[in-house]
Design a protein around this nucleic acid. Structure first.
Lengths: 192, 192
DNA sequence: CGCGACGTTGATTTGCCTCAACGATTGTGG
DNA sequence: CCACAATCGTTGAGGCAAATCAACGTCGCG
């Protein structure tokens, strides 16, 4: 099993010796997801932290008109979770599925809690990860309220230059908060 | 100086003995803010973590049409920070000011970093705080994309029953993402 | 007292949505 | 390996939620 991407992600923030690394990887579960396969469905409890090693997942809600709204894309190297459900054990509002064939590692919450006690350095790791995620969410929120649809699209292209090439346009539309029809018109009429 | 609200906030998540509590409070700076006084202005670097003990602060952006968009309210017992600026040292996009006369404690970032090394339990505290904040931001984002203006207003009333009574209506409008005129019409025409 | 901030109401505009139809591409089962 | 079904992007007509602009009454405060 290839843990290298995951371990290098961890050791960007904290140092691990061999024993600690081995203990950590012993907690990991590997899973391969087919396109459209669900990792979490609305109403279930999100009991694991998931790290993507290949492919691309997404989290999204479905509103009362059955329209999907993408909250996050998670290509290789990203975590994805319904944090409220994970922290409180309440039913998830988010769905998480695979946009293409993908590989993930996940850790069950009780194992992660043990890990904090056994190797307290992981508290630091999660603290840093949480702060970075929070920074991203704050700024996404700012963009959503302060920018026009076209500006949000440009922002998205800047932020995820690699995703823009592979993602179906309707997924991008859902992420930036417009209909696929509108995004299409926007891209084909705005010549500037 | 009254540290009780702050300390009880901390000890909800981690235990502190007297010595640890004393060291922690020795890092705190007290400040009283007048109404409309700024704690952070766009372009500055957010170098401190701020905890509110009385009154109410807000963070907001100003878009290119000079319209304010409120990202967060911070009444007593809440933290407030431009996390991207705090983490990376980049110029802040957020403004933070006081909606009324308020009291805060802040900790400078280098002191907080030392605190993590001196009392590693604070890594755990910040990890838990970060996860809770992340949960809140994810769900706010969901509400913003999946709910109508009226539903967002109701959601706000549920979430901040105490704020709704004291806050000027235009601040609430800005938070839920509509103009003050529209919120007024919405509340006076919808009889249901 | 007088000024500025706030809430309200009306007339008008607009950014984006809805619905519908169509061609191009992808993928899948017979 | 082909045929058919999905899925996707595009385009047009029409509609609606919310914004903009403007005017006015009220209140709190310096």
């Amino acid at each position: 099993m290839d843990y290298s991407l995951f371990l290098s992600h961890i050791t960007r923030h904290i140092d691990l010796n061999k024993e600690e690394g081995d203990y950590f990887t012993s907690l990991l579960h590997y899973k391969k997801l087919k396109k459209k396969q669900f990792l979490l469905e609305e109403g279930e409890v999100n009991t694991k932290s998931t790290f993507v090693t290949s492919g691309c997942l997404r989290s999204y809600v479905i509103d009362k008109n059955t329209v999907e709204h993408v909250l996050q894309f998670a290509p290789a190297g990203w975590w994805i979770v319904d944090m409220r459900s994970y922290v409180t054990g309440s039913p998830a509002r988010l769905n998480i599925d695979a946009l293409e064939e993908s590989e993930i590692f996940y850790i069950n919450k009780p194992d992660f809690e043990d890990l904090y006690l056994r190797i307290p350095k992981f508290e630091r790791f999660s603290r840093i990860l949480g702060q970075n995620s929070l920074a991203a969410y704050q700024y996404r929120q700012i963009d959503n309220v302060a920018l026009s649809a076209m500006e949000r699209y440009r922002q998205f292209c800047q932020l995820y230059p690699s995703l823009i090439k592979t993602l179906p346009q309707k997924q991008v539309a859902s992420y930036i908060g417009v209909t696929p029809e509108f995004l299409s018109k926007m891209l084909n009429t705005t010549l500037i």
